[in-house]
């Protein structure tokens, strides 16, 4: 039963990810994020893009659990918050410059996620979603009572800690570039997973978990790996973000609003696609920022944001990119 000679139809598929146009579109977007504010030393644009990058990181990692594996993680903010805490706590200790502290946060959080993941992922659907909320609340409760981390009052970061990075002005730029790097890694991670065997297994789980198991997909292992792998970069991002804010407290770090927004963004953009969460995050963040400072809308910006969400959910349930794919199938090859 040797496999037959592969037909031309298969050869038509790109040899490697480097040959796929979307790979280069992502690279272009990253370059834009780096170049645009740097050219004009435009600090305001940088602040705005930084928030967009954070949302993109959260949404594209979340997309792997929601859009591929079909598990809606309501409490995904716990990775961001716990990573933030670990980094803020470690930074300033000997041997822990910012990059190391943030990385350590990422490693610890994804290790914990692997352990917790095996347990939490025994549940499905709504039970899983509730359990993820429970994980977030549990971690928040722990931190609130953990005095080495400031308990409910939180931790403050001394401005001296910005000195190794060249003072606050330079540090804010460095942190921005680091976050853009994490954003790039997030996009490439979700892309790489999607075209890999691992991603195929996750997608199968998302379609029909039991059938996938019968087909040989090691569902328990894959789900836990996905949960853990997509905790890593958000944890690092949390570390960088809270370092920049110079202050972290449990009610902010574990605020479920963030993960709910991330879910909304994934839906808005188009779950299961790579471009979807990124585009959704970018527009959502820009819109919110604009509404906040606009003279006309700032008083009811929450209403506008909510209305927009409703419209998208009612009329574009596959999200922006998903709907575009359905309308123009050839678009799939370029914008994935």
């Amino acid at each position: 039963m040797a496999t037959q000679q592969v037909s031309t139809r298969i050869d038509a598929l790109p040899r490697t990810i480097l040959h796929r146009p979307f790979f280069w579109i992502i690279a272009l977007a990253i370059a834009a994020f780096v170049v645009a504010p740097t050219i004009g030393n435009d600090v305001q644009l940088r602040e705005s893009l930084l928030l967009a990058a954070v949302y993109i990181i959260l949404a594209s990692n979340l997309n792997v659990m929601i859009g591929y594996a079909g598990y809606v993680n309501f409490g995904s903010i716990v990775f961001f918050g716990l990573g933030g805490y670990l980094c803020v706590w470690l930074v300033g200790r000997p041997g822990f410059p910012l990059a190391v502290a943030a990385l350590a946060g990422g490693v610890v959080v994804s290790a914990l996620a692997l352990v917790f993941g095996f347990g939490v992922l025994r549940l499905r659907g709504a039970y899983f979603a509730l359990a993820t909320i429970g994980v977030n609340e549990g971690v928040q409760a722990f931190v609130m009572n953990f005095s080495p981390w400031g308990g409910a009052a939180g931790m403050y970061l001394s401005t001296e800690l910005f000195a190794p990075l060249g003072g606050p002005r330079q540090a804010l730029w460095t942190i921005y570039y680091l976050l853009v790097a994490v954003m790039g890694l997030s996009l490439y991670l979700s892309y790489g997973i999607k075209v890999s065997k691992f991603g195929l297994g996750l997608l199968a789980i998302g379609q029909n978990e039991d059938a996938a198991a019968v087909l040989g997909v090691p569902t328990r292992l894959y789900k836990a790996l996905a949960y853990s792998a997509t905790a890593f970069l958000p944890a690092i991002a949390g570390g960088l973000y809270y370092f920049k804010s110079a202050f972290i407290q449990p009610s902010d770090a574990f605020d479920l609003t963030f993960s709910t927004e991330a879910i909304a963004i994934v839906m808005l953009g188009g779950q299961g696609t790579i471009a979807g969460p990124a585009i959704g995050a970018f527009f959502y963040e820009e819109l919110r920022g604009w509404l906040l400072t606009s003279d006309t809308f700032s008083h009811f910006q929450l209403v506008v944001a909510g209305a927009l969400l409703l419209i998208i959910v009612l009329f574009l349930p596959r999200g922006l990119i998903g709907t575009a794919h359905a309308r123009w199938p050839d678009l799939r090859r370029i914008i994935e």
């Binding site: 928030l51 906040l292 400072t293």
Partner: peptide, 13 residues
Amino acid sequence: YDDQSQGSRVQQL
């Protein structure tokens, strides 16, 4: 500007 009682917007604003 309205910071919405949230730290995430404060630095941007």
